[in-house]
Structure formats: C-alpha cells, structure tokens
C-alpha cells in the first residue's frame, strides 16, 4: 500500500494525458498539419521568397482590405456592445422568468446556423423583401440599396456575433455582489454616477471579453461579408477566398491568412497579459 502511494507520487501519472490523444491526433491531422502547410506555401508559392508578404504588406489594395476589415470589425464590435450591454443589463433587472425568456431568444439565434441567418437577412433586405416594402409604404421610394452594402453585412454580423457579447456581459453582471451596489447607494451614489463609477467598471471584464471575442471572430469572418457585403468593400477572409478560388494564387492567399493569424494571436496575447485567456469564455 505504502509502496503504491510512493510510486504514484514519484512517477508522473500519464493516464490523464492518454485521454487527450484522440483529440490531439484529430487536431494534428486536420488543423496543425494543414496550417503548417499554409505557412510553408506562403513562403514557397510560386518560389521560395518573401515576395508574397512583401506584396501583401506594401500593396495599396491589400492594405485597404486589411484596413477595411479592422474598420468593419471595430464597427461590428461597437454595435454589439451598444446592443448587448443594455440587453444584458435588462436581463439582470427583470424577473427570472423574463430573463430566461430573453436568454432563450438570444441562444436560439445563437444555435441557428449562421448561413441560415445570413440567407434570412438576404430575404429581409432584398428588393422584394419586407423592409423595402415598408420603406416604400412610408414614402421612401425608391428605397436605398440595402443588400450587398457595408450596412447589410455589418447588420448581419452584429446579429450573428451579439450573443457572444451578451453572454459575456450577462455572466459578469450576474456575478456582481448586490451589496456593492447597496454600499454605493449608502455612500450617496445614484443613477448615472452610480453606473459610471461603480457598475460600469465592475462590468468592464465582461465588456473586454465580449469585445475581444467579437473582434477576433469578426476579422476572420468569411460567409456573411461575402454573401451580404459590397464586393467593393471586401474583408480579408473574402479576399483570401478570391485569391485561391479565382486566381489560384495559393501563395498570396496563404500569406494573407498567416498575417491574419498573427494579428489574431497578437490580440489574444495582449488580452492574455492583461486579463488571462482562461477568463475569455466566462
């Protein structure tokens, strides 16, 4: 008995790691190897050089697409925050039943495939859709172009990504000790000053989490901007798709993908240093 215990204590126990093997193998074969392949291609296609990176980093068009991507992601993140924060606040200040109902609606949209949601927006915003009909009915005729604009792709991405923001902020709000709010009231705080000096700072971790998640997912978003967005205002993921599908420029596509990956990792690294990545999923 004693011997068994000391043996267990001396040798590192490898069994738990064994449980990870299937997942590790899967990730290696279907994620790490292809990713490595992409990284290699970015330097070797069509010939071994940094030419792809040079073109991406110095080309006006590419710079513009990256700028456009960040601007769109920033706009989407901000919109998600403006939509999500009040909703999360509401969920924390209504009865439990109502809160659950709102949560159900939020998660229901979350569980619906974003392809489906994207097509739903196409129907809603299309030329024969209800929004155009409504605008016509109130006298806005001809209705402005809604579909295939930055507006439509941003709107759809906000819809798709808002649940990440809402859930993150909602969780943090739920954990706020109500005694802190009472305490602030007893010290003379109310309304806006209470919100600005106490409530908002206490929810800051949720805001940071939500914004990082939404931003990071958004800069790599492919389907929605491609299907709903303006072809003149492409985002990086769309451009990568075009490079590979239409021009068979694997090297250029790979270089852009790697740059996008590095940027994403950099954002997450900064976040990790400030807050800790383990907190990102609540």
């Amino acid at each position: 008995m004693g011997a068994t215990i000391s043996r267990l204590a001396d040798k590192p126990n490898l069994w738990p790691w064994l449980l990870l093997t299937p997942l590790a193998l899967y990730l290696a074969v279907f994620f790490a190897v292809p990713l490595f392949d992409v990284a290699v291609m970015s330097f070797t296609e069509p010939s071994l050089s940094f030419a792809n990176y040079e073109r991406v980093l110095t080309g006006k068009l590419y710079q513009q697409v990256f700028m456009n991507t960040f601007m769109t992601a920033g706009l989407v993140t901000l919109s998600c925050l403006l939509v999500g924060y009040p909703l999360a606040y509401l969920m924390n200040h209504v009865t439990r039943r109502t809160a659950m109902l709102i949560l159900l609606l939020v998660t229901m949209s979350f569980w619906t495939s974003f392809l489906v949601r994207t097509y739903a927006w196409m129907v809603l915003l299309g030329n024969n859709g209800p929004v155009v009909a409504f605008l016509a009915a109130i006298g806005v005729d001809p209705a402005p172009q809604l579909l295939f604009t930055r507006f439509s792709s941003t709107l759809a991405m906000v819809h798709i990504l808002a649940p990440y923001m809402i859930m993150n902020i909602y969780t943090v709000m739920q954990k706020i000790d109500p005694v802190l709010i009472r305490s602030a009231e007893s010290l003379g705080a109310r309304g806006w000053s209470l919100f600005r000096h106490v409530y908002l700072p206490l929810t800051a971790p949720g805001i940071a989490n939500g914004c990082v998640l939404v931003f990071v997912i958004c800069i790599g978003f492919y389907v929605t901007p491609v299907l709903l967005g303006s072809p003149r205002e492409q985002m990086v993921a769309g451009l990568i798709g075009t490079q590979i599908e239409e021009f068979l420029a694997f090297g250029m596509g790979s270089a852009m993908a790697i740059i996008l990956l590095v940027i994403t990792l950099a954002i997450l690294a900064v976040y990790h240093r400030r807050f800790g990545l383990d907190k990102l999923w609540g």
């Binding site: 000790d177 005694v179 802190l180 009472r182 305490s183 010290l187």
Partner: peptide, 17 residues
C-alpha cells in the same frame, strides 16, 4: 432613499469597490 440618508454603513464583507 438610501443615498439621501447620509448614513455610513460597514457591511459584513466590507463591500469595498
């Protein structure tokens, strides 16, 4: 309301910000 009463309270778990 509590914020109008000018009463100082120390709570059980201090409730520091």
């Amino acid at each position: 309301a509590p914020y109008q009463r000018n009463i100082g309270i120390v709570f059980q778990n201090y409730a520091l910000f």
